[in-house]
């Protein structure tokens, strides 16, 4: 199975090349945990898996508010969230 390297919050991870950013994030963390804070500072992460709920938005290669569940990974992709990552929206 082909793999590639992405950077999640500045740490490198090797993931399956056919996965999405959501897949890469969940492989890098042992348990689904917050990838953003809501407007009232509540922890949130991916819910619908289908690009509907917008809960999974993260910063990808510097572009904020990208949907992790709808974005295929690419080699060298830089994914950030949490502190210093996605701004609240």
């Amino acid at each position: 199975m082909a793999t590639l390297t992405v950077f999640i919050n500045n740490r490198s991870y090797t993931c399956d090349a056919s996965t999405t950013v959501a897949g890469a994030i969940t492989q890098a963390t042992p348990q689904l945990s917050a990838t953003r804070q809501s407007v009232r500072d509540m922890p949130r992460t991916m819910v619908c898996g289908m690009g509907i709920c917008f809960e999974c938005r993260v910063t990808i290669n510097g572009a904020a508010h990208q949907l992790a569940c709808q974005t295929p990974v690419a080699s060298g992709m830089r994914i950030t969230y949490g502190e210093g990552g996605d701004a609240k929206l």
Binding site: G23, T26, Q27, C69
Partner: peptide, 8 residues
């Protein structure tokens, strides 16, 4: 959908 996308 998330598991299909690679979520363990």
């Amino acid at each position: 959908a998330l598991v299909k996308a690679g979520m363990p």
